[in-house]
Design a protein around this nucleic acid. Sequence first.
DNA 1: CCCTGCCGTTCCGGAGAACGGAACAGCGCT
DNA 2: AGCGCTGTTCCGTTCTCCGGAACGGCAGGG
Lengths: 272, 272
Amino acid sequence: MTVLSLPPLDLDNAVGPPEDDSPLRSVSTAVSVLDCFADEAELGATRVAARLGIAKSTACRMLAALATGGLLERTGAGRYRLGLRLFEYGQLAVDRLMLRDVALPAMGELRELLRETVQLGVGVGTDVLYVERAEAAGMNVRFRSEHRRNPAHSSSAGRVLAAADPALITAILERGLQRYTPFTVVDPLRYRQILAITREQGYATSREEFEPGWSSVAAPITLRRGGRPHPVAALSVVGPTSRVLGPRKPAVVQGVRRAAARVSADLERARG
Amino acid sequence: MTVLSLPPLDLDNAVGPPEDDSPLRSVSTAVSVLDCFADEAELGATRVAARLGIAKSTACRMLAALATGGLLERTGAGRYRLGLRLFEYGQLAVDRLMLRDVALPAMGELRELLRETVQLGVGVGTDVLYVERAEAAGMNVRFRSEHRRNPAHSSSAGRVLAAADPALITAILERGLQRYTPFTVVDPLRYRQILAITREQGYATSREEFEPGWSSVAAPITLRRGGRPHPVAALSVVGPTSRVLGPRKPAVVQGVRRAAARVSADLERARG
DNA sequence: CCCTGCCGTTCCGGAGAACGGAACAGCGCT
DNA sequence: AGCGCTGTTCCGTTCTCCGGAACGGCAGGG
């Protein structure tokens, strides 16, 4: 059972016009309508229509249909928001990854060992989506939904995933290495270099490349597929730079690698 | 902003034929296709077509369209499963409820106080969906996705939600009081009686009515809407019957009520 | 080895549905 | 009251989507 997913979807967060090349146009536009709600919590028919370049009446029908399906909910007068049925489906989706259950104990122990936040990330397109997180004490307030997804090029988790996946590398480079901080690696050559080092070392780091002051260390969770191990997810430790890349760096690296190796072994044992 | 949702969708878990009465037929069938994946983790076109009573080709197109939209993922050869994009949307949906953030601290404290599992449930149709859960120590293995949703009539959380909502009561009774254990209340008169007591007391209990050996106590989280407080969610404590309905029952009841009242106040203060 | 089920996918024509535009209705504001 | 803004409904035309059948792979068994 494969765990890594590479749908050929364009992750333009600038919600584009309804995708055209696929069959089932109304279904495609329905998904585009859902996409509109990624940016804004509540929307009406007019705004949706304007964003997608469709008629207002069409948008209204779409919203109504999605609402009767439970994917959206009405909030009073003609405004809609994402429905709780999506929560249900989403939980089913990650539960069935069975990756989360296997990784949870190791994540808890790693958090106790290092006293830092531990994340479990999987690849979604050219992004990393964190499906589980064990927060360090006192971090309850940090990390909200806006930290649930990262561009792969600027995170350590994204690097261990990309290191063994040439197709993903080209996709990331095509998308462009956007700069988030002064430390973000934006030079393709340097990026490839870093991936080579990642391959060699078996782990990756990111030093304040996505958010100033915050760094991370990641190791791949692998699954034997057709002979050789293939990374399907990443375990990463994130915290203030001085705490994860300072004097404790060797301990952090060793801890992450061991935990990831353990999860890999458990996953291998439990795979169906 | 309303939090309780009452979409008129039929929650027949026997996935019915594609719903007909709504506009946008293909969108409706697409949602029905998603529903198929609530029961089974992986499906192919043939099974989906058989379940929904549609042509195989139609099912194939639906699956392909949903996959390009990211709501489904392909797993190898023509089989599909729920996609991680659903997880993302689902997280957004509950994050925006802002109920969860407000309730989380109180849930943690209540768990420490009682050393039992604390749940935050909202109404979805005639079911209760638990959007957050603070597990008692040593309970990590219990509660999986199959415990994320309960019929409202047999749970304490469902009772505090229904007690103040006549429309919900009739919907629950129309759906029928299904028996799960020898203790499940299945008599409509007795059920109404219990709801009356719930209204009077301000909390509800369920004694092994859904799963033998497990009972729960719930109190409503309310929000002032148009003058009088209206329950929008429920806080419940669940555990072995002897621990939550035995000698400690007064402490449990008091703890749940206080925590729910605190969440209500916080929600009132933070409501937009 | 070839054949035969089975599955997913593609092709095609007709029928029906969805689209867009315009008109209607409710609401807040000036 | 008038106006501008919403969301919703109605209608005719067009184009999309549906179902059936044919195609291509794959596996198992004769």
